[in-house]
């Protein structure tokens, strides 16, 4: 049976993990490779590496890092942050990334999604969508949530599916950072609307939130960062809890 995926997200700056990470026993918790391997051993199903430097000069550092991750990691991983062209994608996939994630660039130039999909296949195109519920309307935001667009979330995800996106990574800005749970109602609505997988993001605080994302939210995967980095939730414990609750997970 196809399992629900648990995906830790690591923020990268200048080739190093950013958020203070609570892995005291790691030789170098700032090394994305060591941290990624640890998560893989603990049962993470995939990893997302988000490059938040994403300046042009630092691209080379990122490419080198991606090669090092690919050489060391035996589970799939996605790389995102600052991707705005087919050439960027080509460099990351050639370095060994399994998938790439695009966000703002796709809003500015939707054909980027179809260009990547037709060249490399839909399976490698994750489109990250940051959205906020404003008076009952879910609006899409750009640049890490700083710029509001006129796009409605539901229209945008339907368009993304047509353009050839392989997966949607939906972050609710209303929930992100709150640790009060994922945006389950809206997750379910978009999950029913499209036939490609939806990854829930934003709001994870306790194991019950993941359960809700998969049941009420109908998500195919759930992504979180700080609850894993600070060991508030251990991936192994989370997955045994989900299994007890009859959610199919890889143990």
């Amino acid at each position: 049976m196809l399992t629900k995926r648990i995906i830790p997200c690591l923020d990268i700056k200048d080739g190093r993990t950013v958020k203070g990470v609570n892995f005291l026993d790691l030789r170098d918790a700032g090394d994305p490779v060591e941290l990624g391997k640890r998560y893989a051993e603990e049962g993470a199903d995939e990893l997302v590496f988000l490059d938040i430097t994403a300046t042009h000069e630092k691209r080379k550092t990122l490419i080198e890092l991606v090669s090092r991750i690919a050489l060391n990691l035996n589970i799939p991983f996605t790389v995102g942050g600052g991707i705005s062209s087919v050439e960027d994608v080509s460099a990351l996939l050639n370095a060994g990334a399994d998938k790439i994630s695009v966000n703002s660039a796709a809003v500015k130039r939707p054909e980027l999604v179809s260009d990547i999909a037709s060249r490399f296949g839909s399976q490698c195109v994750v489109v990250a969508v940051d959205a906020k519920n404003i008076n009952g309307v879910w609006k899409v935001f750009l640049n890490g949530g700083r710029i509001e667009t006129e796009l409605h979330l539901e229209d945008w995800v339907k368009q993304l599916e047509k353009l050839g996106a392989g997966e949607i990574l939906f972050t609710s800005m209303n929930h992100d950072g709150t640790k009060n749970g994922f945006a389950c109602e809206e997750l379910a609505r978009i999950s029913d609307m499209i036939s490609i997988p939806v990854i829930a993001s934003g709001g994870a605080g306790k194991p019950e939130h993941f359960l809700e994302a998969f049941t009420k939210g109908k998500a195919d995967a759930a992504l979180a960062a700080s609850v894993f980095h600070f060991k508030e939730i251990e991936i192994k414990d989370l997955k045994s809890y989900l299994a007890q609750q009859q959610i199919p997970v890889r143990l």
Binding site: M1, L2, T3, K4, R5, D45, S122, Q123, G166, E167, S195, I196, P197, D220, A221, R250
Partner: peptide, 13 residues
């Protein structure tokens, strides 16, 4: 057939 989500992405046994 698109009875479930396609592509089939993830871990299966």
């Amino acid at each position: 057939e698109r009875v479930l989500k396609v592509p089939h992405v993830g871990w299966n046994n």
